[in-house]
């Protein structure tokens, strides 16, 4: 309990610093436009897989988008295209008017992928400091410490990834994604390996980070509850080849809390989206 309180206090410090950053005027035009985006993977022997089929989506600067859908429907592929890790076979993606690759050069993106991708030879602290080094910037020591505290791992600063649990590794990976104060945050099932309680805590933290410095965020999750809790809009993808089956605006008041989750409005949205998810899964052609 005490340690939680401590975290909260430290958090406040962290967040108010971010606020200052925001007031300094980098309230960005980090809108994302996806236009007729498709992705076809060419396999051996001329086989092809259509992973994503025709996605049109306009994401406003500072908006929080949650992406849900059955496994293998192309969510990660879509994220990888936004992050510039794959090129769309058709259509285009623009982030604040630039291509993803141009954004990458300016270190505008923060990404935590499904696999944590930490460097096994670096401690948690050094893993979070890595983006600074990779960008050739001086390491902001205070910021690294704040991020460690933010994900509740300040006692594990010197631990190597192999000494951390799966969920801890994911938290380090999220902290790393936040290190350079990105304008676009891309999270692929970041809380997949967390227990329900830690997951809710992390959701809360994520909401707070986001609300103090609205960063355009795309979050992939398998939890409809998480999606409704965090997002401004929930996008539901149909089974492969993925396209947007439903885009549901979530107008719940912010900040959202545990009480929000008890409201009828929340429950209705949850029920509606869960039913919609079930429906797209059922209607999938047998593969």
């Amino acid at each position: 309990m005490m340690s939680n309180l401590h975290d909260v206090i430290r958090l406040e410090g962290f967040l108010s610093r971010q606020e200052v950053c925001m007031e300094a005027g980098n309230q960005s035009t980090s809108d994302i436009v996806l236009e007729g985006v498709r992705k076809r993977f060419e396999l051996a022997k001329g086989q092809v897989i259509d992973a994503v089929e025709h996605v049109d989506l306009n994401i406003a600067g500072g908006e929080f988008i949650a992406l849900i859908g059955p496994s293998g429907c192309g969510k990660s592929t879509l994220l990888r295209m936004v992050a510039g890790l794959e090129t769309p076979s058709h259509g285009q993606i623009k982030i604040a008017g630039q291509t993803p690759n141009e954004c990458i050069k300016q270190q505008k993106l923060g990404i935590a992928m499904q696999e944590h991708g930490l460097m096994p030879w670096l401690s948690a602290w050094d893993n979070i400091a890595l983006p600074f080094r990779l960008a050739g910037l001086p390491v902001d020591i205070d910021r690294v410490h704040e991020l460690l505290a933010l994900v509740g791992l300040d006692e594990f600063a010197n631990a190597l990834p192999k000494q951390l649990s799966g969920g801890m590794k994911q938290r380090v990976s999220i902290a790393r994604a936040l290190a350079l104060e990105p304008q676009v945050l891309i999270l692929d099932e970041p809380f997949g390996a967390l227990d329900a309680v830690t997951r809710r805590l992390m959701n809360n933290e994520l909401q707070r980070i986001w609300s103090r410095k609205p960063t355009t965020t795309i979050l992939v999750t398998h939890s409809v509850e998480e999606a409704v809790f965090l997002a401004d809009r929930v996008c539901l993808m149909s089974p492969r080849p993925g396209r947007l089956a439903l885009v549901e605006p979530i107008t719940l008041e912010r900040p959202r809390s545990l009480e929000t989750m008890q409201t009828a409005e929340f429950r209705n949205l949850l029920a509606k989206l869960t039913a919609a998810l079930d429906e797209v899964c059922m209607s999938a052609p047998a593969q």
Partner: peptide, 16 residues
């Protein structure tokens, strides 16, 4: 995944 890190941070060849 490490290649992804190299690419998403636009890392120079030398630093990578």
């Amino acid at each position: 995944v490490h290649d992804d890190v190299i690419r998403t941070y636009g890392v120079t060849r030398w630093r990578a």
